[in-house]
Amino acid sequence: MDVLTQNFSLYGRGLLGTVQLTVYASLLALALGVLMAAFRVAPVASLRAFGTAWVTVLRNTPLTLLFFAVMLGLPRFGLILPFTAFAVLALGCYTSAFICEAVRSGINTVPVGQGEAARSLGMTFEQTLGAVVLPQAFRAVIPPVGSTLIALAKNSAIAGSFSVTELLGTYKPLNEMGYSIIWSFVWIAVGYLLVTLTISAIFTVLEKRWGVPR
């Protein structure tokens, strides 16, 4: 217990770092994921190809490798950002591939006739997707998107190895100060639980409110 009370601000900064990474990367992943899902069902072949390539590359790259690519690669092209921003970029892009596939499977649960009816009324592809298909797909994708964002929260631990302040990284200074490694990690685990259970709770509420009624 002493570990926590005596190092509350250290844990607090770590938790805040993890929450920031999770929130910003989630927003990026959701935006990119929905956009890529739209690309993958678009009537334009080049957009479909781009979406497929995006998913294939990002989903099949180990996240650590992606972090290296972003942190070491982008500065070579003159893009220099704070480490946290790079971490958000890597996490967000990586997770967007999984969000894209969840949204796409949601789109596939919407009967074809819904889209046909919208198009037969003169709605464009964007209007059909935005006003008719996605709102109905949204209900079906709440559970898998929740799981994906929980995975994102835990994946954010990798950022600690790249000089970003986050929760897992707090074990290093604690260890150096001679605290019990076990108790250090117990409180780190509790911190992650706080984040992931909050995400779970948010998605449970969303599902109650918007989920597919049975």
């Binding site: 009967p111 009816a117 003169g122 464009t124 008719v132």
Partner: peptide, 28 residues
């Protein structure tokens, strides 16, 4: 899309927008 707006279509399986009320279906 513009041409389809001039050509009304009624389907065998109705295809009303399931997430919208009747009134919204007509207004959308």
């Amino acid at each position: 899309a513009r041409l389809r707006a001039e050509v009304g279509m009624v389907f065998q399986s109705f295809n009303l927008f399931a997430h919208r009320t009747v009134l919204d279906n007509l207004m959308l």
